[in-house]
């Protein structure tokens, strides 16, 4: 139906947001979602424009053939050209905004604006070899948790109902199949479940304790929609598997031995730089969203 897998992602994340608003009494206000969306889109626009301006100056304009008179002209001419060459990517910032709205809770709007700004700005500023290595929404959450005193995440908010799990798995599966990153989710969930099972066995809890710990809706949402962001995770499959196993291991340790309720977010944040090393070790083609490849070379 959609050409771009991100359209499915937007559809599903919006669906979860509506589902949450209707069936889960969250402390989620429409104004907060509005601020998240507006900030991410605005930040993306500004950074894209600037990137485009820089690119025009360097004569790297992708597939556009430029009139000789315009290249290297006056700043206003350069801006004009940058504007003409500017392709607005609205999908990625929207996905980040929806992700933030689903996961992050704030008392005040500026906190959400900060999280949304950091999320998008990180894509442009924290890059190695042209690839951003932090998951934007995750970095936004970490920034809000660290630098403000009115942000929190609610890991218990989705409950453990099985039909939510099925919806998440179904929707996530569709997106991942199109993107080809299901291996990461499988490796993460599989190894995390195994670690929790071993712990359960050691402690001597009944198995319903294990099942309860794994059927958390928030964990599934993370596993299907955040840990799999194809643009920021390692490119090669072996690298991705190692990466997913590391995330599962560190999450397990932070959750069970440091009692961090936000363990998954901190883990992803701490291990994201590992992507760079893993990409060096295993060379592979970088992921590009279908139909977007041509533009990517310009705006990064």
């Amino acid at each position: 139906m959609f050409r771009d897998a991100r359209d499915y992602q937007i559809l599903f994340l919006s669906l979860f947001l509506c589902l949450g608003l209707v069936t889960r009494d969250w402390t989620l206000r429409p104004a907060v979602i509005g601020v998240a969306i507006a900030t991410t889109l605005l930040t993306q626009t500004l950074f894209s424009l600037w990137g485009s301006y820089q690119a025009v100056g360097n004569g790297q304009t992708g597939e556009l053939v430029l009139p000789a008179t315009l290249t290297g002209g006056s700043p206003s001419g350069r801006w004009q050209l940058a504007w003409d060459n500017f392709a607005f990517n609205w999908r990625s910032p929207l996905i980040s905004a929806l992700g933030l709205s689903l996961l992050l809770r704030v008392d005040h709007l500026p906190t959400m604006a900060l999280a949304a700004f950091v999320a998008i700005a990180s894509k442009f500023l924290l890059k190695v070899d042209g690839k951003h290595f932090f998951n934007p929404a995750n970095l936004g959450i970490i920034a809000a948790l660290s630098f403000t005193h009115d942000a929190w995440v609610s890991p218990g908010q989705w409950g453990e109902e099985i039909w939510y799990a099925l919806i998440f798995l179904g929707a996530g599966g569709m997106v991942l199949k199109r993107v080809g990153r299901w291996d990461t989710t499988a490796a993460f969930l599989g190894s995390y479940a195994l670690l929790e099972a071993l712990r359960n066995l050691y402690l001597g809890w009944t198995w319903d304790v294990w099942l309860h710990r794994l059927s958390s809706g928030s964990l599934l949402l993370f596993a299907l929609f955040m840990v799999t962001d194809p643009r920021s995770i390692p490119n090669a499959r072996p690298a991705r598997l190692i990466w997913a196993l590391s995330i599962a291991g560190l999450t397990f340790v932070l959750r069970n031995y440091f009692y961090l309720s936000t363990a998954v977010f901190w883990t992803l944040f701490l291990l994201s730089p590992l992507t760079i090393a893993l990409d060096r070790l295993w060379q592979s083609d970088r992921f590009v969203w279908k139909g977007w490849a041509a533009r990517q070379s310009v705006i990064g």
Binding site: H149, W152, D208, R213, Y259, S261
Partner: peptide, 17 residues
């Protein structure tokens, strides 16, 4: 017993509502 298999785990939030 059947609905609450795990002990209760809490967290402080900054939620001032």
């Amino acid at each position: 017993r059947n609905k609450f298999p795990e002990d209760l785990a809490f967290q402080q939030t900054n939620n001032q509502e």
